[in-house]
Computed example of a mutant assay.
Amino acid sequence: MQSLAWAERAAALPSDRFARATGIRHAVAATTHLQARDLDHGLVAGHQAVAVLADVTSIRTASYLGDVANALTPWQREPEVRNLIGIISRTTATSTAATA
């Protein structure tokens, strides 16, 4: 998948210098895995995206994290999924409030 190849290239970027680009690529990878019904890899990439984007205040990053949360909805009863959705909600609330 092209989106996963694009996301893998982000691994070479230092996240401290390219946080937004790296975090968005992790979010795209998470969404792609989840759309392919690969929960395990989707959760890993989703957590990576949140970890990188936690200090980035941007409507764009909040949108990408929102896509991850939406892609998680088929598994919303799973505790680890609820946990990640909660983390995303808190992160995006902080991000969008800071840009308002």
Rank of each mutant, 00 (worst) to 15 (best):
Q2P: 11
Q2I: 03
Q2S: 12
Q2C: 02
Q2A: 13
S3L: 13
S3H: 05
A5V: 12
W6Q: 11
W6M: 02
E8I: 00
E8F: 05
R9P: 00
R9L: 14
R9V: 03
A10Y: 07
A10I: 07
A10G: 15
A10P: 00
A11G: 09
A11W: 05
A12P: 00
L13D: 07
L13A: 12
L13Y: 12
P14W: 00
P14L: 00
D16R: 11
R17N: 09
R17P: 08
A19H: 01
R20C: 03
R20S: 12
A21I: 09
T22A: 15
T22M: 04
T22V: 15
T22H: 13
G23H: 06
G23D: 09
I24V: 15
I24S: 08
R25K: 14
R25L: 15
R25N: 15
H26V: 00
H26T: 00
A27V: 10
A30D: 10
T31H: 11
T32A: 15
T32M: 06
H33N: 12
H33A: 09
Q35V: 03
A36L: 12
A36F: 03
R37I: 00
D38H: 13
D38S: 13
L39F: 08
D40E: 15
D40V: 06
H41S: 14
H41M: 09
G42Y: 04
G42D: 05
G42V: 10
L43I: 06
V44R: 04
V44Y: 01
V44F: 01
V44P: 04
V44M: 02
A45I: 01
A45T: 03
G46P: 06
Q48N: 15
A49K: 07
V52C: 07
L53H: 02
L53E: 04
V56M: 06
S58E: 08
I59Y: 05
R60H: 10
T61I: 01
S63G: 11
S63A: 03
Y64K: 03
L65I: 02
V68A: 08
V68H: 04
A69G: 02
A69C: 01
N70E: 15
N70G: 08
A71F: 12
A71G: 09
T73R: 13
T73A: 10
P74M: 01
W75S: 03
W75G: 02
E78G: 02
E78I: 07
V81Q: 01
V81L: 01
R82H: 05
N83R: 13
L84S: 01
L84C: 02
G86Y: 04
G86M: 02
I88G: 05
I88A: 05
S89D: 13
R90Q: 14
T91I: 01
T91M: 03
T92E: 10
T92K: 04
T94N: 11
T94I: 11
S95V: 05
T96R: 15
T96Y: 07
T96G: 00
T96C: 09
T96V: 15
A98V: 03
A98H: 13
T99L: 10
A100D: 05
